[in-house]
Design a binder for these strands. Structure first.
Length: 492
DNA sequence: AGTGCAGTTGACTTT
DNA sequence: TAAAGTCAACTGCAC
């Protein structure tokens, strides 16, 4: 038997448009492998809901590969030990996988894998997925390279895979390890490529036209958004496939959808370039300014802050494993500003709740919504105004906070102001927002802040807007003449 | 009908 | 992808 190619599946659970699989199959017989890593599933950003989605995707992938001749092989344990066992059984030529921009744990695990492969003279080919560029030297020209990547042809799954003799496919267990806490998520989306394709088709066919109008309010977002995030995060479909079918469709609404897919990669690139942002603020002056308060954190995480719209959003997220982008930003902003909690702690709760948890997007966003990147303007959401804007009639609040269901609409956003004895929220929103704003701006005004901010902009900022200086330094334009005829200049 | 004024709207700045 | 404050233009209304 010729030397074997291992295709190591991670968060790329598909065989269509899977370049590592495609190229490995051209070289020789393939062992398609997924390794369930108990230590990974015990990391604080992992949860059972993510595992269950992953598990459903594995079942789907195993079936698809079986139809080609060789079902997905699943093993549990340390990945290097699994590879080592394979090496004792077969002559291995290469390992094929996608580049992964994961958390610190997967980063260190990949280094161990690389060292092991080098030691044994086994090639490890890692091919890019998404538009993320490894060992990026400069952000200049990034958008163009992204476009090139996305325009490349989608590769088909291999026509067939020769079956391996003496290889037990292995069970796909109910749980990846004993330690993973139970985490009920009754409205979770089901995993797997078949589901992803249904969602994609339905979105482009029926929902894309109303996309941009429905993404802001949680009343419309659950059915109006693409809902592809979890399928992209677990690789049930490739970014390239989604972009290309969206362009083929090219109906109304598709362009604002596409721009979000572009931002997806933009944010992952930041973690790829600087893995430390998982733990540490971009701007050094922002480090350690907040304070962990576990009763506040718990109240926020369970949806019992006493601010109706915040609680409704959190409970909806906990039950669905998903909420729309704007409400994610509001939840993070509330934790970081009103509750003054360190984003790493609140961010870990959100990471576990998100079935679509994507480390690069997540940690970039946590920092951005906490004001710690320093290259974005401070956005302190007013959760009461957000509620009035996006849930004017209180429908969403009543659905998720049954204890408020009988309140009239006029009272639902701030019940404590209208009803005697109604409990106050855990913080006074107006006071807390003012205090947070004062604290943040005191830091931003301090000597030396801008130099750090400029360096961060150079390294991570989007070039699309054309290298804008930071807000604090932007020249104020004189007030423009508003209407009618321009006043004639009389300076002679 | 023109004037004065309170309240509203919108553009823009500041935090 | 924010919110609050400022200022000037505008609106409706009373006289």
């Amino acid at each position: 038997m010729p030397a074997l190619q291992i295709v190591w599946f991670k968060r790329d659970l598909r065989m269509h448009d899977h370049r590592p699989l495609h190229q490995a199959a051209e070289r020789g017989p393939v062992l398609p492998l997924y390794v369930i890593e108990p230590e990974l599933w015990q990391q604080p950003d992992c949860s059972e809901r993510q595992w269950l989605f992953c598990r459903e995707s594995l079942v789907d992938l195993r079936q698809a590969l079986a139809a080609l001749g060789q079902p997905l092989v699943v093993r549990r344990g340390d990945v290097v030990e699994v590879f080592e066992r394979a090496r004792s059984q077969f002559e291995l030529e290469a390992i094929w996988s996608h580049e992964e921009t994961g958390n610190d744990w997967t980063f260190r695990r990949d280094k161990r894998v690389a060292a092991w492969a080098r030691r044994h003279g086994i090639a490890w080919f890692e091919l890019p997925q998404f538009g993320v560029i490894r060992r990026l030297q400069s952000r200049n020209g990034w958008a163009r390279r992204w476009e090139t990547q996305m325009a490349e042809p989608v590769v088909m799954s291999p026509p067939g895979l020769p079956a391996l003799v003496r290889v037990d496919p292995g069970l796909i267990p109910e749980r990846p390890c004993e330690e993973l806490a139970s985490d009920p998520c009754p409205q979770r989306q089901p995993g797997g490529r078949s589901m992803a394709l249904l969602e994609l088709g339905d979105f482009l066919e029926n929902r894309a036209a109303r996309y941009s109008g429905s993404i802001s309010s949680p009343n419309t977002a659950f059915s109006g958004c693409s809902r592809l995030s979890a399928y992209l995060a677990w690789g049930c479909v490739s970014m390239r496939e989604v972009i290309q079918s969206s362009r083929r469709h090219s109906g109304r609404g598709v362009s604002s959808f596409e721009s979000r897919l572009h931002w997806h990669c933009h944010f992952i690139q930041k973690l790829e370039d600087q893995p430390a942002i998982e733990f540490s603020d971009f701007h050094p002056f922002m480090r350690g300014i907040r304070e962990l308060n576990s009763s506040r954190l718990e109240a926020w995480a369970q949806g019992w802050t006493g601010v109706p719209f915040v609680d409704a959003c959190m409970r909806a997220l906990n039950a669905h494993g998903w909420i729309n982008f704007r409400m994610r930003a509001m939840l993070m902003s509330f934790a970081s500003y009103h509750l003054w909690l360190p984003w790493r702690d609140s961010g870990l709760h959100l990471a576990r709740q998100f079935v679509d948890y994507e480390p690069g997007i997540h940690w970039s966003q946590c920092q951005m919504q906490s004001g710690s990147t320093s290259i974005n303007t401070i956005r302190i959401y007013n959760p009461i105004k957000q509620g009035m804007d996006h849930d004017a009639d209180g429908v969403f609040i009543r659905r998720w906070c049954p204890e408020l269901a009988d309140l009239p609409t006029a009272h639902i956003h701030e019940p404590w102001r209208h009803i005697a004895d109604h409990p106050e929220p855990i913080v006074n929103c107006a006071e807390a927002a003012r205090l947070a704003k004062d604290r943040i701006w005191a830091i931003r005004r301090s000597a030396g802040f801008d130099q750090h901010a400029d360096a961060i902009q150079k390294r991570h900022g989007s070039r699309k807007a054309g290298l804008q200086p930071t807000v604090s330094k932007r020249r104020r334009k004189p007030a423009a003449q508003k209407s009618g005829v321009q006043q004639l200049s009389l300076e002679l």
